Simulated scan of single mutants.
Amino acid sequence: MTESSPGLSSGVVDLLGMLAYAELTAFLKLAEDAALLAPTLNDRAALGDVAATEYGHFRVLRDKLSSLGVDPEEAMDPFVDAIDAWHAQTRPKDWHEALVKAYVGTGIAGDFYREAARHSEEPIRRLVDDVLTDEGRSEFAVERVRAAIEADPRLSGRLALWARRMVGEALSQGQRLAAARPELAAMLVGEEGEDLAEIGRLFARLTEEHGRRMAAVGLTTSG
């Protein structure tokens, strides 16, 4: 590992490493879902475009880590098990589950990264915001899922349960990572890391964003 930039915190390295591996894995999983689950060639191409965007984000993060004097593989390595476990536990069985995962599941993860970046310096916040820019994923997934539910309303309950399962798994893995990487955990709640009120506000923001996403895709957060 090359010598990192002076003053670069391990929390920032953790954030960029975690996000880099998340983007790399998202590319691989989306490409796999496109090949195996997409019902039409147009759907395969559309999800393939999303996958390609994720890989572009990975390259930006990899290059940023390298420019900071950090070995990207070493930065990503602490997060491999948790992110791989989340994907293993949320493997979609069909096209509609794949779409909900691409929108709702990836969305809740992105919310975590944005929350951590809120307490970092402006260049890191801007980088994370740029990498997490939606770039069409919402429109692509929302249109198809809403049309499918309109055609078969029975899908709504199953997909809502699926979305809640993904979020539960994401929260569980996030708690494990926070316990293992205290400087990353501190970034989520700033200097008030032991303030229960601040932690409560964090989860309220995450819950609000999740509810907004579920509503947009035509699903309910309860029931």
Rank of each mutant, 00 (worst) to 15 (best):
L28P: 00
G218S: 05
L28W: 06
V131L: 06
E32W: 02
D111P: 00
P6E: 10
P153W: 04
A163T: 05
R91K: 15
G136Y: 05
Q173E: 14
S222W: 01
A46Q: 13
Y103V: 13
P6A: 11
G107L: 10
D71I: 04
R137F: 00
Y55N: 14
D81Y: 05
D71H: 04
R126N: 12
K29C: 07
E122M: 10
R154L: 11
D152Q: 12
A160H: 03
Y55P: 00
L159T: 09
G48A: 05
G105Q: 12
K64T: 15
M187P: 00
P72M: 11
H87R: 14
T25Y: 00
I108A: 12
L159C: 09
E97H: 04
R201N: 08
L188F: 13
G69S: 05
G7K: 07
V142N: 08
L65E: 08
Q89M: 14
S67R: 09
A46R: 14
A98T: 06
A160N: 03
L19K: 07
D43Q: 09
A215R: 15
D111E: 15
L15T: 08
R62E: 14
P92S: 12
D84H: 11
S138T: 15
R201F: 02
A98C: 05
D81K: 14
Y113E: 05
E139T: 14
L196V: 14
L171I: 03
E150C: 01
F140E: 10
T40C: 04
V189I: 08
A148W: 03
A109W: 15
S5N: 02
E209R: 15
R126Y: 01
A102K: 02
G136C: 04
L47H: 01
A51G: 13
A109K: 12
S9K: 03
K101I: 02
A109N: 06
A102E: 07
A147K: 13
S66N: 04
L16N: 07
E97M: 06
H57L: 07
R44W: 01
R201G: 02
V167G: 00
R144M: 05
L37N: 04
L47V: 14
A34E: 09
S66T: 15
S156T: 09
M214Q: 09
Q175W: 07
S66K: 13
A88M: 11
L132Y: 06
I124R: 05
S156W: 00
A148V: 08
